[in-house]
Computed example of a mutant assay.
Amino acid sequence: MTGSWTASAVPVIAAPMAGGATRPALVAAVASAGGFGFLAGGYKTPEALGAEMDALTVPFGVNLFVPGPSTVGEAEFRRYAGELAAEGAPYGLDLAAAPMVEDDDHWQGKIDLLLESPVPFVSFTFGLPGADVVAALTKVGTQVLATVTTAAEARAAVELGVHGLIAQGTEAGGHSGTHTPEQPGVVPLRELVQQVVAATSLPVIAAGGVSESSQVRELLALGVSAVAVGTVLLRTDESGASAVHKEAIAAAGPDRTVITRAFTGRPARGLRNGFIDRHEATAPIGYPAIHHLTRPLRAAAAAAGQPDQVHLWAGTGYRRARTGPAADVITALAAEL
């Protein structure tokens, strides 16, 4: 794939982790070790994203969430909000009365920003952008990447005319990039990479649970152009993850991650905790309404140091997340390449 990271020393990419974990300092630190980083545009206003872009002097990419249609009705939303009332009560939150919020995450404003201030790469998650968006970004010199979780999604992205694919295996932490949250793909990364590489001639980036240099080497041998990592960077000095998130990852035993929709109404992998145990079975599919419903609870719990009610996103490689400079993590992952 042509673009900024081909000039980098190592084909290791810092994945965009929305919600605060990825910040300019982390992207810069990864670049200092020869890697390449993506800013997370999700949950940010165009102004906030623009400020992060202005703070960087190294090449970087930007990731955006593709807005989709509402998937939860008012009655189902009110049922779940009532169910969560007891969770919010200790923090003074009346979740049962919370409004049902549906938005597009400032979609057009951020597209306009990226057309006015082009970056080398823009990646999309949760679905595919319109052909007009791909054409407009291409016209200003940006390469468009699509996150895919199945071979069928990869073929649809190829037909759209994107420049590259991010194959996200089920091991990935945080939200699944699935285009169909009601029936998400659960393909392991190695298998997905083989399927996607076989189905297209486009460059492919592998993402999902990668935490060791041996995994990077194996995936490159399967034909990917680069490997993206996220969870393994969460505890580093430059990570913006909350203290409660970092501490939970450090303290977690083996095999603690699960895929849940309880926090946001969209499948995402994180450390299993009490909130997931109490609500997973009854949580509706309904992003972003459920995300907005639980957001104040998650913020209050994190501020109070209560991991039981926080979305502790983490991929399957979380036990190898280490402290110290992010540059050291990238260097270790690129060992013997």
Results as ranks from 00 to 15, higher is better:
28 A>M: 10
28 A>T: 12
29 A>C: 07
29 A>P: 10
29 A>I: 13
29 A>E: 15
29 A>H: 09
29 A>V: 12
30 V>M: 00
30 V>H: 00
31 A>H: 15
31 A>V: 07
31 A>M: 08
31 A>L: 08
32 S>F: 06
32 S>P: 06
32 S>C: 08
32 S>I: 05
33 A>L: 04
33 A>V: 01
33 A>G: 04
34 G>M: 10
34 G>Q: 08
34 G>L: 11
34 G>A: 08
35 G>N: 01
35 G>K: 04
35 G>T: 02
35 G>M: 01
35 G>W: 01
35 G>Q: 01
36 F>R: 01
36 F>C: 02
36 F>L: 03
38 F>L: 00
38 F>V: 03
39 L>F: 06
39 L>V: 07
39 L>P: 03
40 A>D: 04
40 A>C: 05
40 A>Y: 08
41 G>I: 00
41 G>N: 02
41 G>T: 00
42 G>R: 14
42 G>C: 09
42 G>Q: 15
42 G>E: 14
43 Y>L: 05
44 K>I: 03
44 K>T: 13
44 K>A: 11
45 T>V: 12
46 P>D: 06
46 P>N: 06
46 P>F: 06
46 P>Y: 06
46 P>E: 09
46 P>S: 05
47 E>L: 09
47 E>P: 01
47 E>C: 02
47 E>Y: 01
48 A>T: 13
49 L>V: 02
50 G>I: 11
50 G>H: 13
50 G>Y: 12
50 G>D: 10
51 A>M: 06
51 A>P: 04
51 A>W: 09
52 E>H: 05
52 E>Q: 15
53 M>I: 14
54 D>Y: 11
54 D>G: 02
54 D>C: 07
56 L>V: 10
56 L>Q: 06
56 L>A: 08
56 L>C: 08
56 L>R: 07
56 L>M: 09
57 T>H: 13
57 T>D: 15
58 V>P: 05
58 V>D: 03
59 P>E: 00
59 P>W: 01
59 P>G: 00
62 V>R: 08
62 V>D: 07
63 N>Y: 00
63 N>T: 02
63 N>F: 03
64 L>A: 02
64 L>D: 04
64 L>N: 03
65 F>K: 05
65 F>I: 14
66 V>H: 11
66 V>T: 09
68 G>V: 10
68 G>K: 14
68 G>T: 13
68 G>L: 10
68 G>D: 08
69 P>V: 06
70 S>H: 09
70 S>M: 12
70 S>P: 11
71 T>H: 03
72 V>F: 04
72 V>C: 03
72 V>Q: 04
72 V>M: 05
73 G>A: 14
74 E>N: 04
75 A>V: 14
75 A>I: 12
75 A>K: 15
76 E>S: 06
77 F>N: 07
77 F>M: 11
78 R>F: 07
78 R>S: 12
79 R>Y: 00
79 R>H: 07
79 R>A: 04
80 Y>Q: 13
81 A>E: 14
82 G>S: 11
82 G>H: 07
